[in-house]
């Protein structure tokens, strides 16, 4: 299978940090953009994106593909997405295992699906069509969820694994989403990490969440929690040096704080590598 480049340690490219990134050239290996924020006619966002693209690898991450919706695929959206991809030449394009609306409506949210054979067939067929239209392999992310459905016929990780194999797509493993969904639904996070096919994972997401005691919400407005770092270590051991980035979308801290989280990630990875070397010796 073709493998995507190992980009290293990245961050989400958010306007609040534009000036600091341009003036300080921080030690970030790559940036991920929210595709829709740049699917606009022109102006500052696209100008800035071109400046960043000249210096950093860029990955396009979308939130509106609605892969699991039973509405028809939005071909205008896919055409605009492809136009942006042709312009940006990203390392890859990703979106979510989710739907955003039906009957022509859009709830602007990543909505949950039942893990059924019907849903699996539906999603696999649509990923195939998207890949044909975009003329590139799609990278699909596990979403965080707050409900599951009684009719589900398999655990989420089995659905994800089958989807990747059958659609021949790649996976964006959101480690925080695994943790959030695992907490909310009471499944074993480690089982999820261990079941995902290692050769399909192209990228990790890391992020913070909000703890509401009875449930967790994937808010991207907090530092990464210790339990998620622990799960990250497990994922890193299993999937190797796939590209990783931190999503921060609200309650923006000083940029140095995000650089600190990236450094913590590098330190964890260095310790894992050192352990592996000692074991091999």
């Amino acid at each position: 299978m073709e493998s995507l480049p190992r980009l290293g340690y990245g961050l989400g490219l958010r306007p609040v940090y534009y000036d600091e990134i341009l003036s300080t050239r921080p030690p970030v290996d790559w940036f991920e953009i929210i595709s829709e924020n740049y699917m606009i006619p022109g102006g500052r966002p696209l100008v800035m994106l071109e400046r960043f693209r000249a210096d950093y690898p860029i990955v396009m991450h979308g939130v509106s593909m609605s892969l699991a919706s039973t509405d028809p695929l939005d071909l205008d959206y896919l055409k605009a997405l492809k136009a942006l991809a042709d312009r940006v030449e990203p390392a890859w394009v990703s979106d979510h295992l989710a739907w955003t609306g039906v009957h022509g409506r859009n709830l602007h949210d990543l909505l949950p699906i039942p893990y059924t054979r019907e849903a699996l067939n539906h999603v696999v067929e649509r990923i195939g069509r998207v890949q044909d239209i975009l003329k590139r392999r799609l990278v699909v992310e596990n979403a965080s969820t707050y409900v599951t459905f009684t009719q589900s016929e398999m655990p989420e990780w089995e659905f994800v694994a089958q989807m990747a194999e059958r659609a021949d797509c790649l996976l964006l493993l959101d480690v925080n989403n695994v943790f959030v969904s695992g907490f909310n639904h009471g499944f074993d996070n480690n089982a999820f990490i261990d079941a995902v096919p290692a050769d399909r994972v192209a990228q990790f997401h890391m992020a913070g969440h909000t703890d509401n005691e009875t449930h967790l919400i994937d808010t991207h407005d907090q530092p990464i929690r210790e339990e998620v770092w622990t799960l990250y270590e497990r994922a890193r051991r299993r999937f190797g040096d796939v590209s990783v980035m931190i999503e921060r979308d609200d309650n923006f801290p000083p940029f140095s704080e995000l650089l600190g989280e990236l450094q913590h990630m590098r330190d964890i990875d260095a310790a894992i590598a050192a352990n592996a070397s000692r074991s091999a010796a």
């Binding site: 409900v147 459905f149 009471g186 009875t214």
Partner: peptide, 15 residues
């Protein structure tokens, strides 16, 4: 009716 029981919260809370 078609939402499975969450771990700790009740179903209306999660919906």
């Amino acid at each position: 009716d078609v939402i499975a029981a969450p771990r700790d919260a009740d179903r209306p809370t999660m919906m």
